[in-house]
Design a protein around this nucleic acid. Sequence first.
DNA 1: AAAACAATTAAATAATCATTTAACTATTTG
DNA 2: CAAATAGTTAAATGATTATTTAATTGTTTT
Lengths: 122, 122
Amino acid sequence: MSELTTPHDHGQALERELEHVPSVENFQTVADVFKQMGDGSRARIFWLLCHCEECVINLSAMVNMSSPAVSHHLKQLKAAGLIVSRREGKEVYYRAADTPQVQLLHHMIEHLMELACPNEFV
Amino acid sequence: MSELTTPHDHGQALERELEHVPSVENFQTVADVFKQMGDGSRARIFWLLCHCEECVINLSAMVNMSSPAVSHHLKQLKAAGLIVSRREGKEVYYRAADTPQVQLLHHMIEHLMELACPNEFV
DNA sequence: AAAACAATTAAATAATCATTTAACTATTTG
DNA sequence: CAAATAGTTAAATGATTATTTAATTGTTTT
């Protein structure tokens, strides 16, 4: 089945190490989730929505961006299933979705922040 | 200090929830790490290098891409500190760096794969 | 030293994507 | 019903980026 043939054989027993290589599609699916956090503004908005529920203009003020720009990011996060929304009168409130994926991403952001930004947590 | 003022006050005690909001720079730093995994091909190459050490042409064959394209991704992963390389004769061998960040990312990929690609693990 | 092989770099192309401005929809209030 | 407020959508722009092709560098072998 998954016979991995490479141009060079360096005798490292490739087959032992790489018994099950996930498909290209699986890596693309995972990459699409990572891509959501690959933009600083979007990661920031997502993180905020893990900590509070907010409407668009408040979010815009918090991240210092125009509301169309924020709306654009919210649309992507929602399409990715990372946030949910509810309308209350004129306002639409957004918050993080309650899923294992979201918890994993949230935890990951905070963990990565500790590792990559050590000065921040003295 | 971090007095968060928003256009609307919906009385949700924002200050309680958001005592310490990381800086824009910190989110950008974290996003830059995520960005590395935001490309399917690069995530795949990184994952492979978490499981074995390989030279460029073998990697190219494994991911079915041209060697310049692979080299391009390797350069980025290396600049991000996620992989290391060593030359042995004509070949340059790459492997994942031995750091907490790398372990976290690797674990995250596999965890996310289980969550987002359930059919793959029956 | 020349030929062959491995890898990187450079230039060019195509595609993706974040942001802005402007127009539009939806809801509430006077 | 008109005005005001909140949010979204569309078109346009600018920036970033993945990939290809071609040229170049580094190493080994004959």
